[in-house]
Amino acid sequence: MEFEHITVETTGRIRYITIDREKKLNALNRFTLAELYDAFTKAFADPAVGGIILTGKGVKAFVAGADIVEFEGLGYEGGKEIAQRGQTTVFDLIANGPKPVIAAVNGFALGGGLELAMACHIRVASDNAKMGLPEVTLGLIPGYGGTQRLTQLVGRGKALEMIMTADMLTAADALQIGLVNHVVSLDDLLLKAEEIMNKILTRSPLAVAAAIRAVNAGLADSTTGYTTEIEEFGKCFGTPDFVEGVSAFLEKRPPNFTGK
């Protein structure tokens, strides 16, 4: 498989998918999301693949967020469409996939990057990792499932604190609240992810797939939460605060929000 924004390799029964935009801190743009959809669809359909490890290129970032340049100038319908397409084709695809997906979080996992890691079934972080959802600093909310999956993982109070303050967590803090499963050194990151995956691969693939479906079914009542998130994400694109947040980001200055 040949891609421009990701790399795909297979060793044994493990498919490695690496987001390869190191100069952009592996930020997610529409082309990267399209390639992730293609790569995961093929991995889930390939009988030779038992599980997937997802990571980012380099040592600085797993994914530092969405490519904000693509948000400029969008209104309500454009914002809603971005959230709907991303959730459906990538984030929900991974979360509901029939094969285990482990995120090897190396460095920053912010915004869409943390949402991508949370869509995976298991998260292993390097000890230099930093995680957070900074969307409110742009006049937005998380739009790729973040409001729902973070709440499911860490609880309502901590999720609201993280989202509303936009504060970043260290890997150690993320481990303490259950946002990640393990923290190891950067050198041991893939080794730990492989250790977990190889253990899973000794189990029944049918049972593993059934377990994923059963766990996800227990969260089914939150479906309306995702719908609400998409709607509210789209609404943000029609606000002056969103225009100011994106302008400030692109101009590298502090935003001046008015609450409108």
Rank of each mutant, 00 (worst) to 15 (best):
L74G: 00
M131Q: 14
G78W: 09
V246F: 03
G51A: 06
I200R: 04
T223H: 06
I230L: 05
A174V: 13
E161A: 10
A159M: 14
T32V: 02
L160V: 11
Q176M: 09
V8L: 06
P254N: 14
Y37E: 15
E2K: 13
D167A: 13
L133P: 07
I230S: 04
T32S: 05
R149H: 00
T170V: 04
L33Q: 08
M168D: 01
V154F: 03
T147L: 12
Y16R: 15
G145N: 03
T10C: 10
R13H: 05
D173I: 03
A217M: 11
I196S: 03
N26S: 09
N216Y: 11
T151Y: 04
L250Q: 08
L175R: 12
L160N: 14
R85A: 08
Q152A: 12
Q87Y: 06
E22V: 02
E251T: 05
T228H: 14
A220K: 11
A214M: 02
C236P: 00
D20E: 15
N106K: 14
K57P: 01
G146T: 01
T258F: 11
G75K: 13
L201T: 05
V90T: 04
A61E: 12
G143S: 10
L140G: 03
T10E: 11
F40H: 11
T88S: 15
P100S: 04
E231L: 01
Q176Y: 06
L74Q: 01
L133F: 08
V49M: 07
G225M: 11
E4G: 01
E194W: 02
L160Q: 15
I102A: 05
P255V: 14
M168T: 04
